[in-house]
């Protein structure tokens, strides 16, 4: 049985890496986008900052 081969501790390591990497990568990208947005907002005149 596959379940017998997958030791609990080993499985949790891979589960942790998957969820952890997903949170870090997506969280990092979100921070990058929000910071870029803020920095760019300062370079653009106010009348061109309104959203379509």
């Amino acid at each position: 049985m596959i379940a017998q081969q997958i030791q609990n501790g080993e499985a949790w390591t891979y589960v942790g890496i998957t969820w952890g990497a997903t949170a870090v990568v997506l969280g990092g990208y979100v921070l990058l986008i929000l910071r870029r947005g803020k920095a760019l907002s300062k370079r653009v005149p106010e009348d061109k900052r309104r959203w379509m």
Binding site: V30, R36, G37, L40, V44
Partner: peptide, 23 residues
């Protein structure tokens, strides 16, 4: 999440274009 992020990423692109044009 993808919808939320797409809107933000879209606006960043739009701001980038506006900043380039302004400069």
């Amino acid at each position: 999440f993808a919808a939320w992020l797409t809107i933000h990423r879209f606006r960043v692109g739009w701001l980038q274009d506006q900043a380039d044009a302004t400069e």
